[in-house]
């Protein structure tokens, strides 16, 4: 069920990304699209993401989560906004970002006396709020014409968690940790460089990209060592 949701979401993102670029027009080249002198300022990056996230931890957390919520991985949906005011020549952009992540897991409680699951729904909700330092390496795309961007992120992760056991809230808390992410993105300007240029001229959107990211954090309840996400990103 969840994997189907993820597939649909990923497909929707892909369609949205491809739709932003129409059929290629030969007379307008990829390198022209990367003509930075003609570009509008590129200071922000925005991402909309969906992926798999499974909270993990120690002291029996993994076992308890497995027993109560099975193999659920969300999906986790997220939005990220990066402010990238600095550019390091022949490397990329540096700045800071803020992300909002949200995921919900449901499962049935179990009977104390070994009768299996009971008809009592539980909900485990995670709301992640990492503040990140961002290094966006775009030298391949800008200098060599290879439309690949590699991004690293490191920062402080705050995760808010609520656990409802049927009609009662059993837990509501916040945990802190370090946050990391490694991202690879495929810039989509090459599909239709003219359209990409128009998008910049008319809307100030410099580039759009499909992204894949591995990320994680060291927060306690609600944190996860390793998760993944697909998404659509843009810089402006």
């Amino acid at each position: 069920m969840h994997s189907m949701t993820l597939t649909k979401a990923a497909a929707a993102l892909a369609i949205a990304a491809v739709a932003s670029a129409a059929p290629a027009e030969a007379q307008y080249t990829y390198s022209e699209a990367y003509d930075r002198s003609a570009e509008s300022p590129e200071t922000f990056a925005f991402e909309i993401r969906v992926g798999g996230y499974r909270p993990d931890g120690s002291n029996g957390f993994d076992e308890a989560f497995e027993e109560n919520f099975g193999d659920e991985i969300g999906p986790m949906v997220g939005l990220e906004l990066d402010f990238l005011p600095l550019r390091i020549p022949y490397v990329g952009m540096v700045g800071a970002g803020l992300r909002f992540d949200w995921a919900k897991y449901t499962g049935k409680a179990r009977a104390l006396t070994g009768m299996g699951n009971v008809d009592q729904e539980q909900e485990f909700r995670v709301f992640g709020l990492p503040v990140l330092a961002v290094l966006r390496v775009d030298v391949l795309a800008r200098e060599l014409g290879v439309p690949v961007i590699v991004t690293g992120k490191l920062g402080l992760h705050t995760v808010f968690t609520t656990i409802d056991n049927g009609s009662r809230r059993e837990h509501s808390g916040v945990a802190l940790g370090l946050s990391w992410a490694a991202q690879v993105a495929l810039e989509l300007d090459f599909i239709n460089p003219r359209r990409a240029k128009t998008l910049d001229n008319e809307w100030g959107i410099n580039h759009t990209a499909l992204l894949f990211e591995l990320f994680g954090n060291t927060a306690g309840v609600g944190g996860s060592n390793l998760a993944w996400t697909f998404g659509l990103g843009m810089t402006f």
Partner: peptide, 26 residues
């Protein structure tokens, strides 16, 4: 019937909720 939920099975949880847990990878 008496049911066990997540907070009953995770040892860092008490009746007033779960502790934030250790910062893993500290």
């Amino acid at each position: 019937i008496q049911a066990l939920g997540f907070c009953d099975t995770y040892m860092d949880c008490e009746s007033d909720g779960c502790s934030a847990g250790p910062i893993r990878g500290a």
